[in-house]
């Protein structure tokens, strides 16, 4: 399977075609972890590790969902609101009682699948533009979340919030284990025929169709997978916060896109992967904490965070654009 040379045409081509080189992603990871270890007292203590992994996990899960959609040539601007909608359904159903967890989690997961299905039908079957279709559906999902949980509230069983903060064998936080499971889930997707089809469709839809790849079904399924991961991210957020909020995950949409670009996934689809995206999520969350621990003045923090992220992403654009120019 070679990387297709034909990209979607248009003025955005150089930008969308850019892809973070693997080495650059790895270097960013090493640099942010090293800087955190220096600047953040107690970074490697059990509490330090747990608090960082607890913050990374929801971002990482939603990014993996976005990666699957983007690899298939789409984009999901509603993914953060799916996180919110699933989480408010779950928190309303669980009502603080551990024995209702299976029901509540199942319902939350179904909501994620359902939202993904709506997006998938709009994009793959009705053939609306992904940006417009999912931007519109984001308002539907956000509005539903407000109807279901009009004011912040609801209680997650303490079993869940305490379990999320556990440290196994004094060094391995539970969220880190879950992050590993997330990566294994991605490997399972990749091992399946669906995983290879997603790359094919995102890379070159026409060629994929000519090779008997069921393009419509694959695109539809990529959105369903995105919605499913969004629901899982909602569960992680609930475990982290302990209560529901009708605006809980909405801002994760843009975070997920930034993380996947840092992680080396090409925005025009067909190249990249969830491993890098998880690293991208780690880098992004660490950068935000680093700015704090580096004692950057409050007023300058947003500026510095933004500048670091732009520099990180610009590395990708510069390197790939030149690399391709030199190629055949």
């Amino acid at each position: 399977m070679t990387r297709p040379s034909a990209l979607s045409a248009g003025p955005l081509r150089p930008l969308l075609g850019a892809r973070m080189p693997t080495v650059a992603t790895a270097v960013l990871l090493v640099a942010t972890v090293a800087a955190s270890a220096v600047l953040q007292d107690g970074f490697f203590t059990p509490y330090g590790l747990t608090s960082n992994f607890a913050a990374v996990l929801p971002v990482a899960i939603v990014t993996v969902g976005q990666v699957i959609v983007v690899l298939g040539g789409g984009i999901d601007l509603s993914i953060g609101t799916i996180v919110t909608l699933s989480s408010v359904v779950t928190v309303q159903l669980v009502a603080g009682q551990p024995d209702r967890l299976p029901l509540a989690l199942g319902a939350g997961l179904l909501v994620g699948v359902g939202c993904g299905l709506v997006n998938g039908l709009a994009v793959a079957v009705v053939r609306l533009q992904p940006i417009v279709a999912t931007f519109a559906s984001s308002f539907v999902f956000a509005g539903l979340a407000l109807l279901i949980l009009p004011t912040p509230g609801g209680e997650v069983p303490s079993l869940v919030t305490l379990g999320y903060r556990q440290v196994i064998a004094r060094a391995i936080p539970v969220p880190a284990v879950l992050l590993l499971l997330l990566w294994l889930a991605w490997r399972a997707v990749l091992a399946h025929r669906f995983g290879r089809h997603v790359y094919a469709v995102g890379g070159n839809e026409g060629a994929a169709y000519a090779s008997a790849v069921p393009v419509t079904a694959v695109r539809l399924l990529s959105y369903v997978a995105g919605g499913t991961f969004a629901a899982l991210a909602g569960f992680a957020l609930l475990a982290n916060s302990g209560s529901g909020d009708p605006f809980l995950g909405n801002s994760l949409t843009l975070t997920s896109i930034a993380a996947l670009v840092i992680g080396g996934t090409r925005l025009s689809g067909g190249a990249g992967g969830a491993g890098g995206a998880i690293v991208g999520a780690v880098v992004l969350v660490l950068i935000q904490s680093l700015v704090f621990f580096a004692r950057v003045p409050t007023t300058a923090r947003e500026l510095v965070t933004g500048a670091i992220i732009i520099v990180a992403i610009a590395l990708a654009g510069l390197l790939t654009a030149r690399g391709r120019g030199a190629g055949p």
């Binding site: 990387r3 892809r19 080189p21 693997t22 080495v23 992603t25 790895a26 990566w183 490997r187 992680g263 080396g264 996934t265 190249a271 990249g272 992967g273 969830a274 491993g275 890098g276 690293v279 690399g323 190629g327």
Partner: peptide, 8 residues
Amino acid sequence: ALFGRPAK
């Protein structure tokens, strides 16, 4: 596997 596809 970890970082997706290799850079060229």
